[in-house]
């Protein structure tokens, strides 16, 4: 595969394996690429500077199993998705001793993110969003919402981003969708979220955190950002896991503006 990922990934002619650096690509991108190529095998990941090691086994488009020195299964997979520095090595043809995950790549990523968010929420209830290095430092002035929305728009699969007030006022939008009228989305979204929040209140299950609506011709994903609601429009659900992963920090950053 030389050239496809530039200097990030290189091909070893002896074992046909791929190797590279996590500073220039992400595990989610790598998995998606390998799944699309119908590859089977394992990715060995070494996190720097801790030297933690982990393995992700996959085949036929599924994440079969994962483990690190501390965890196994989905927990270890979720943990490794957050490793942003380190190296990886793809080992083709290797199969796991047992299947501890067994989900499609997209589904596994989605489940891992949900698991991670649940763990974070259970440890830090009502805490302010943690903005990590790379998106914004707390000492810096918050970026303009327009800049954050443009970054969201650059994520592959996102057609449009809209921020709507609780009253349905379309505060800001970026991009466009041939499938969804953004102004109408504002009003509809506010109605839906009100209903969902009333339900959450009735059921006493805390505030709403995410909503995915899958229609035949579009998928809409919503999250509260400050006092407003942000929604992204994608053509289908095929990249939802990746999108959810990549939008997480940007949504947190967007929340500082509203």
């Amino acid at each position: 595969m030389p050239g496809l990922y530039g200097p990030t990934i290189t091909s070893d002619p002896d074992d046909r394996g791929l190797q590279g650096n996590l500073s220039l690509t992400t595990i989610t991108d790598l998995l998606q690429f390998l799944a699309a190529s119908a590859e089977s095998g394992a990715i060995k990941i070494v996190r720097h500077p801790q030297n933690d090691e982990g393995m992700i086994y996959f085949g036929k488009g599924q994440v079969l199993s994962a483990n690190t020195s501390e965890r196994t299964g989905l927990e270890s997979f979720a943990d490794m998705l957050n490793w942003s520095k380190g190296s990886f090595n793809f080992l083709p043809g290797i199969t796991p001793l047992e299947t501890s995950i067994g989900l499609s790549v997209q589904h596994a990523i989605l489940e891992a993110i949900v698991l991670q968010e649940n763990l974070t929420n259970s440890f830090t209830p009502n805490s302010a969003p943690v903005i990590e290095k790379g998106s914004m430092s707390m000492e810096q002035e918050p970026r303009e919402s327009t800049d954050v929305m443009n970054d969201l728009l650059e994520i592959s699969g996102i057609d449009a981003v809209v921020v709507v007030g609780r009253d349905g006022f379309v505060i800001e939008s970026a991009g466009s969708s041939a499938r969804v009228n953004i102004d109408e989305l504002g009003a509809s979204l506010a109605h839906s979220i009100n209903g969902i929040e009333e339900m959450g209140s009735e059921l006493n299950v805390n505030q709403f955190q995410d909503m995915f609506i899958e229609y035949g011709r579009a998928v809409i994903m919503c999250k509260p950002v400050g006092d407003a609601i942000a929604a992204i429009v994608t053509p289908d659900a095929s990249k939802l896991g990746i999108i959810r992963h990549k939008t997480k920090k940007l949504f947190q950053e967007l929340g500082l503006s509203f």
């Binding site: 007030g165 609780r166 009253d167 349905g168 006022f169 009003a187 506010a190 109605h191 009100n194 009333e198």
Partner: peptide, 8 residues
Amino acid sequence: MTVMRNDV
């Protein structure tokens, strides 16, 4: 329920 702008 809150004030729905479009309805107003």
